[in-house]
Simulated scan of single mutants.
Amino acid sequence: MFIKVAGEKKEYPEGLTVKELIEKEDVETPQYVTVTINDEFVESGAFETTEVKDGDEIEFLYFMGGGAR
């Protein structure tokens, strides 16, 4: 199947889960990553059971905190 990961078209086997994709893409600090598939957020507890489908667009997001002085 073909998917887009961070805007780049890639080929992966069918049945790939979000957790497996995070590992294959060597995502930095995976415990803090937020994942969207086709602009829909995926719950972190569902990474192991959510399968990526042909044509999906996946983004890995990190939310940064900050504050005013």
Results as ranks from 00 to 15, higher is better:
I22C: 04
T36I: 05
P13C: 08
F47N: 06
G15D: 04
T34G: 07
V33F: 11
K19E: 14
T49G: 13
F60E: 05
N38E: 11
T50G: 00
V42A: 00
T49H: 13
V18K: 05
F47E: 05
L61A: 08
L21T: 00
I22M: 01
L21E: 01
E23V: 06
K24T: 00
Y32R: 10
Y62Q: 10
I58M: 09
Q31P: 04
V27K: 07
K19V: 12
E20N: 04
Y32Q: 09
P13W: 07
V35S: 01
K53P: 12
K19P: 05
V52I: 12
K19N: 14
V18T: 02
E28I: 15
D26N: 12
F41P: 03
P13E: 11
D39K: 08
F47Y: 11
V35K: 04
D54Q: 10
Y62E: 09
V35G: 02
T36Y: 03
D54N: 14
S44H: 11
K24Y: 05
F41G: 00
I58L: 12
Y12V: 11
K53R: 15
G45M: 01
V42L: 06
K19L: 15
F41K: 12
D54Y: 09
D39S: 08
T29K: 13
G15V: 03
I58S: 06
P30Q: 07
V27F: 10
E28M: 11
G45E: 07
V35P: 02
V18S: 02
Q31T: 08
K24M: 03
E14F: 01
T34Q: 09
Q31R: 09
S44F: 10
L61M: 10
V27Y: 06
I37W: 07
E59Y: 13
E51A: 11
N38M: 12
E25C: 10
D54M: 10
E59W: 15
D54R: 10
Q31W: 09
N38C: 10
V33A: 13
Y12P: 03
Y12E: 08
I22A: 00
G45Y: 03
E48Q: 13
T29S: 15
E59H: 11
I37D: 08
A46V: 11
S44I: 08
E28H: 13
E28G: 11
V52A: 04
I58Y: 02
K19T: 14
D56R: 06
K24H: 02
G55K: 00
A46F: 04
Y32D: 14
E23T: 07
T49I: 15
E28R: 10
D39F: 07
T17Q: 06
L21D: 03
T36R: 05
F47M: 06
P30W: 00
